[in-house]
Design a protein around this nucleic acid. Sequence first.
RNA 1: GGCGGCAUGGCCGAGUGGUUUAGGCACAGGUCUGCAAAACCUGUUACCCCGGUUCGACUCCGGGUGCCGCCUCCA
Length: 473
Amino acid sequence: MSVYVHDSLSGRMVEVGGEGKVGLYVCGPTVYGHVHIGNARAPLFWDVVVRYLRSRGLEVTFVQNITDVDDKIIAKANEEGVSWQEIVRRYVDSFHERLGLLGVDLPDIEPRATEHIPEMIGLIGDLIDGGHAYAPGNGDVYYSVGSYPPYGALSKQRPDEMRETEKGQTGFKRSPLDFALWKASKPGEPSWESPWGPGRPGWHIECSAMVEKHLPGGADIHGGGTDLRFPHHENELAQSAAAHPEQTFVRAWAHHGMVTLGAGGKMAKSLGNILDVERAVSLHGKNAVRMWLLQSHYSQPIDYSEEILEEKRRAYERLQNLYAQISGSTHSSGLSDRLAAELRERFDAAMRDDLNTPEAIAALFDVTGRAAKEVAVNPEAARQFHSLAEALQEMLAVLGLDLAGEDAMEVDGVHVRWRSGEEPGEGVLRKVAERQEARREKDWAAADRLRDELHAQGWLVEDTSEGPVLGRR
RNA sequence: GGCGGCAUGGCCGAGUGGUUUAGGCACAGGUCUGCAAAACCUGUUACCCCGGUUCGACUCCGGGUGCCGCCUCCA
């Protein structure tokens, strides 16, 4: 069992998991604010990938770091007059809470930069020893881009053509492209002892150190947004490859597209055009958000709008309705077995081909729709799709989409059902029972009046042969 | 300015050198239904422009146009 992932460095598909194991490293957040849905794309997508790989029997180690020391964290702390640790604590909690709202599981290892200072210092030492870094005496240590000829390969940039930009110049760097591995700390800033004086790590070095530590032998897949390709990933690669040329650092670089907000372009904290995860979930629901992010390929940019999310909510509902038709199955017809096998095969083929979640989801709709057609022609078939329902449950678990079960209650002698999760109030239930009673007496005027009232309260009543079912409208 | 990517039907969005419908949403008509909803049936709209390669290109190559990302912190 293995999957193929498009590698941004070579431009080719790389086989991953052939040995039965997969080491995955994904760049996590810098915790100085609440994560928005753009930030959430990576954790959500890779969580799905991890679930998929595990469902196929692969042993996965998923590492996603947290950057807990950084200029912005320090700035935020100063702004509020609290410690940087306080800022970190607050936004790590917020990050976890928001992932929870989206139904995203935490990675196996969530290393923090500040917990890897010795490893980073060691790595920097190796770079200096190898002639790839220098300490000009101001307390900083810089990576010498010129010492590593392949520099630029990942971002397809040529160092000599990038010289135009001199924004990074400090006076101590030998080349403006050189970047900080270690920064001398100013008074009041977080600081650690090092051979070059008290200071703190540069941004890129943490990922190099943490990949090497937590995924010995290298990462099979290294994920992150396309905006990290340069300079972050380029620098990571340059550091590790130069320090430890005998080791593989990353086998496949997988970059996901940006979440855009219509004409506003890329969603970014610095642009202020962000949509908080909490708001997105409360506006559209977890399932719609997941459907939205998973129904386009990870490598593509994806646009957010309320209309699009509404569409995705409906798409999810359709899947839900299709599933509901066969969910009561007690046995499996030959058709069910065939469809289940086809579904597994297509889902698998799609995922193995560069983690193509939209293709995988299309298979869900297609196969399930065919079962629904059968049910339409032959109502008996509704109870004969056990094997398909089972397969569907597995795939939806991988995608993290809920299969809303149903709860029910006897109200005034009427069996009232509703989608689990949102319990209707006593008054609503009573109205439904009353309406059912009116229908029994063919008092359509009263029944319609009650339907309208329930509608006004946000509920939709569906009449079925098995009695009324409540749903949020 | 440099580098990279993308351009598919009303919208979202996969995919492929030709023989089959991606899938979803929306819309129109119908079946079912007291009504409504769901489901099912039928129908509608495709591959940015110009060249080239090819027996044949939406699918490969070149050019153009447009959009996006990166080149500075950024998922």
